[in-house]
Computed example of a mutant assay.
Amino acid sequence: MGYGTAIAVSPYLLIKIAWTFGLFMPTDQMGDPSWRIANAVTMVLAAACILLAMSFCRPWGERLPSWLVALPVWVGTGLLVPMLLIAPILGPAAINRDMEAGTADFWVYEQIFVMVSLVGVGICLPIALVGYAKARWPEALGGRIDCGNLPGDTRKLQLTLTRFVAGGCILLAIIKIFWAAGGTLGIEPSKMDDRDIWWRLLSLSTGVWAFAGAWGLLVLTSRRGSRRFLPPMAAVWISSGMLFSYNLFNRLSNSRPDAQPAPEYPLALVLTTEAGTVLGVMMGMILLLVLHDRRRAMRGESV
């Protein structure tokens, strides 16, 4: 699946290279320096994704530092797995919105290539990661959820942080799902019509994954609610990466001069965006504590 990931991301990489150098751009606005920089950054990320995918299926990949593998995969799976679930609706909606905005006809074909690449990577990358993690970090995937405790573990800290973070995730989820369902509290009256299907789906996706992350954290730290370790771990991994990467992406997108104005009041937008980013990072930190203690317990180590 590492090779499949590299093949899937290749069309996306080629399109980003073309846009970075000013070729086949669908609108004149994409010639703006801010767009060129954004395309150059995503071009580098696509190239890094290919190298990372190759590391999953080559011997030298297991010698890479853990953070160099885990950090980009955390961000990548957080971006792509949630998008994979809503792509069948979100893809056509994005194309229709761009066509209504007056983009060039060939942009439709570029969008299709981009969506195919993202869906392909969203499928192949997690599968490749599972095979890689089984060989390098077996404690992260298999076994019972309760491996016992050792002196010097961080479980009390995990429980304390989890109560705070899970509460924040549930609150954020309620707000996002409320907005996706048509709630108007926190929405500017003059921008009610800006709540298109793109905005509603992303709000709903954020809310659902925030709930999933809260559930996963509570199960991992209490060790109740699931016999197996993998389901809650996967929920926390994807949810934390999603909350961090999507909110970071939204901040970058809203900073562009041609960005579509958000329908939320500025204060509501800032609070939910910043809260999502902080919650995603804290969820990731708690997961690292859980995995550290789990590895020690499985190996029977002591302080």
Rank of each mutant, 00 (worst) to 15 (best):
I86Q: 04
A93F: 02
A94I: 07
A94W: 07
N96M: 15
N96G: 03
R97H: 14
R97F: 07
A101I: 06
G102L: 00
G102D: 00
T103I: 15
A104Y: 06
D105G: 01
F106W: 03
W107V: 05
W107Q: 15
W107R: 15
Q111M: 13
Q111H: 13
Q111G: 14
F113K: 12
F113R: 10
V114P: 05
V114H: 15
V116H: 11
V116P: 03
S117E: 09
L118E: 15
G120Q: 14
G120H: 11
G120V: 11
G122F: 05
I123C: 12
I123R: 12
L125E: 06
L125P: 02
P126F: 10
P126M: 10
P126W: 08
V130R: 09
Y132V: 03
A133R: 14
A135Y: 08
E139G: 02
E139T: 13
A140H: 02
L141C: 09
R144M: 12
D146Y: 07
C147K: 08
C147M: 11
N149D: 12
G152E: 05
T154F: 03
R155M: 11
L157I: 14
Q158T: 06
Q158Y: 04
T162S: 08
T162K: 03
R163W: 03
R163Q: 05
A166H: 10
G167C: 06
G167E: 12
G168S: 06
G168N: 08
I170F: 08
L171S: 11
A173V: 02
A173T: 00
F178N: 12
F178G: 00
A180L: 15
T184P: 05
G186A: 04
I187G: 02
E188M: 10
E188R: 03
E188V: 05
P189C: 05
P189I: 00
P189M: 01
S190A: 01
K191C: 07
K191Q: 10
D194H: 01
D196G: 03
I197S: 07
W198S: 08
W199S: 10
L202T: 11
S203C: 09
S203A: 09
L204V: 13
L204M: 13
T206H: 07
T206G: 12
W209R: 07
A210S: 14
A212T: 08
G213Q: 10
A214E: 00
G216F: 02
L217Y: 01
L217S: 11
L218H: 04
L218V: 06
L218T: 05
L220F: 04
L220R: 01
L220S: 01
L220Q: 01
L220V: 05
T221R: 02
T221N: 08
T221F: 02
S222W: 00
S222P: 01
G225N: 10
G225M: 09
R227F: 08
R228V: 08
